[in-house]
């Protein structure tokens, strides 16, 4: 049984969706044809060449109506895994290619950032020494890395992965360092007194203690990675959801661009939800 509050929020959520759809529908209604600037309509052959329907009284709206969008979306999603060579793959393949890139780049970033974060957290001297560099590198946009990466790495595929890596590195690094540094002094004193050996200290005390903060960093990092991949693929991609957006924009096909935007959002949400689940499992109460 839904609580009063839940029911209300569900209703509001549904109403706002409906509102957006209605505004969309009304703002994209076909308008009466009136050639601007007094340009004549032309003969029947002209109408055909312009792709106007036999009913010449309406013109297409620039932006697809919700109905047109839905029809198009069903058509595209009907065969998400079709494969007509590398230049024409279904949207499922593209999403998969993007996810794979993110997993590789993000995985590498985690492998580098978590150990480095431990060093930072346990050795304040090192943190102080390297912090200025981290602070300078952290706010750089993924797209600003692109030309440098292309010129030095000289491989478009590796470039995309590099951009993911470099973007998701910083939040994981800083959160890990913070999480490790704020482990309670008492616990550290206890393991020191008991002379616990390093592997045990790491895996039974430090890691579990810092895990919730590390996971927060990893969630932020994954979000950034997913933001960056779309931009990177629009620039260098030969596959991936960013490439799909570019390719559809090349055809000025807004329906497909909107569909891709929705899927990017959904996939990003799913990724975040997966990490949130992991995060819940490592949470502890002091």
């Amino acid at each position: 049984m839904l609580s009063q509050e839940n029911r209300l929020s569900f209703f509001l959520s549904f109403a706002s969706l409906l509102g957006v759809l209605l505004i969309w529908q009304f703002s994209t209604l076909p308008q009466a044809s009136r050639s601007p600037y007094g340009i004549p309509d032309g003969n029947a052959e002209y109408q055909r060449l312009m792709g106007r329907s036999a009913v010449a009284s309406t013109v297409r709206s620039d932006f697809p109506t919700p109905g047109a969008f839905a029809r198009n979306a069903i058509e595209v999603l009907h065969a998400p895994f079709h494969n007509n060579g590398p230049n024409d793959r279904g949207i499922g393949w593209q999403l998969g290619a993007s996810l794979l890139r993110v997993m590789i780049g993000y995985g590498l970033a985690t492998l580098v950032a978590v150990p480095l974060g431990f060093v930072f957290g346990l050795q304040p001297v090192i943190q102080k020494a390297l912090n200025p560099f981290v602070q300078i590198l952290r706010p750089i946009s993924p797209l600003a890395w692109m030309p440098i990466a292309l010129y030095t790495i000289r491989d478009a595929e590796l470039c995309a992965i590099f951009v993911i890596f470099i973007c998701s590195l910083w939040p994981i690094l800083l959160n890990t360092a913070f999480g490790v540094a704020s482990i309670r002094r008492e616990w550290l004193n206890v393991i020191r007194t008991l002379e616990v050996r390093w592997p045990q200290r790491l895996f039974f005390v430090l890691l579990p203690a810092a895990a919730p903060t590390i996971l927060t960093g990893m969630r932020i990092g994954l979000g950034v990675a997913w933001l960056a991949i779309v931009a990177a693929e629009m620039l260098v991609g030969s596959s991936g959801i960013g490439y799909f957006v570019w390719n559809q924009w090349n055809n000025l096909s807004l329906s497909n661009v909107i569909l891709a935007v929705l899927l990017i959002g959904l996939a990003g949400m799913a990724l975040d939800a997966a990490l949130a689940f992991v995060q819940r499992s490592v949470r502890y109460a002091e």
Binding site: P86, N87, R154, A156, L235, V236, G237, S238
Partner: peptide, 19 residues
């Protein structure tokens, strides 16, 4: 294998780097 490419600068870079 034809590779659809997003622009001329990228064509240049990919041709020069051998991809």
């Amino acid at each position: 294998q034809l590779r659809k490419t997003a622009g001329w600068a990228l064509i240049r870079d990919k041709l020069l780097d051998g991809s």
